[in-house]
Each structure stands twice: as C-alpha cells, then as structure tokens.
Amino acid sequence: MSKNSFAINYDSEIGEIIVNVSVFNQKTGIGTNLKALWDTGANCCVISETIAKKLKLPNIAEVQMKHANGIAIVKTHMLSLMLPNNILFKDIRAMSCKPIHSFDMIIGMNVISKGNMSIVHNKAGIKFSFKYPPTRTK
C-alpha cells in the first residue's frame, strides 16, 4: 500500500469504521489524537465540543442542522485533520456537538469525497481503505 493511503482489515462483518486520527488547530499547531467514525451519511465532519474547546478551534460560522424534529443552529470550526500514514487535510469544516458515544469525531463527506474509499471482501475478511489523492479512472 502506498504511503498516501491506509487500510484497516476486519475479520468479519463491519458494524462501523473507526479510525485513529489527529486533529490540529492550524494556527497554533496544537493537536490531539482521536477516534473518528467514518460516516457517508454526514455531509460535514463533526467534532466533540470538548475537543473543539481544548484545541481552541476557530469558530467560523453558524449553520443550520436539519434533523427529524426541525432545524437547529450549530457552530462550525476549522481544523486540520491527519489520517493514518500522514494523509493531511487542511481547512476542514467541522460542526461541534456534545461528546459522541465512544468516539470524538465523525468524518463526513467533506473529507471522504476528497479521496478514494473502498470496502473490499477478500479471503482474509473485509478491507477498508482510503487513498489520497484519488486515482481518477478514464
């Protein structure tokens, strides 16, 4: 696997994909390691407000969050995100919310769509991989 991609192997059925990542304040360089859930159902990343406060991530706008019961107004922040194998994304938008289950971040389509993501079944089990920059097919 090339250095601009990473893979996670699973023995059996995948319930959720959790990846170890690092999140940074772009200006100060202060960062932390997190567990992040990959979620193609989110059009934007989500980060725990505890982490956002700890890293003093800049609060860059309020946006609408649409859900089953209506619309809420939430804050968005800017951060840098490092995936395994040092795949670095800067200028990433993430909304903040109260701490989420067993992970501190959700990786949404604003990151996922930047690369090639795949889930492949093979003899060993199931392999999830992500490659950046994406390989463009003809």
């Binding site: 959720e16 989110a42 934007c44 969050m65 649409k66 859900h67 919310c97 109260k98 989420i100 289950h101």
Partner: peptide, 23 residues
C-alpha cells in the same frame, strides 16, 4: 461561507449516528 448555490453552503445533514440530544 463557501459561495455555493445549494443549501450545503449553510446547512448540515445530521448523521444518523448522532443522537439529537448531542446538539
């Protein structure tokens, strides 16, 4: 805000994995 013509410029779709009381 990123100047895009649709509502993705100012709104976020809630992930199903996120409980409403997390907001």
């Amino acid at each position: 805000y990123k100047c895009l013509p649709d509502d993705s410029a100012y709104s976020i779709n809630i992930p199903y994995s996120l409980r409403l009381d997390n907001v």
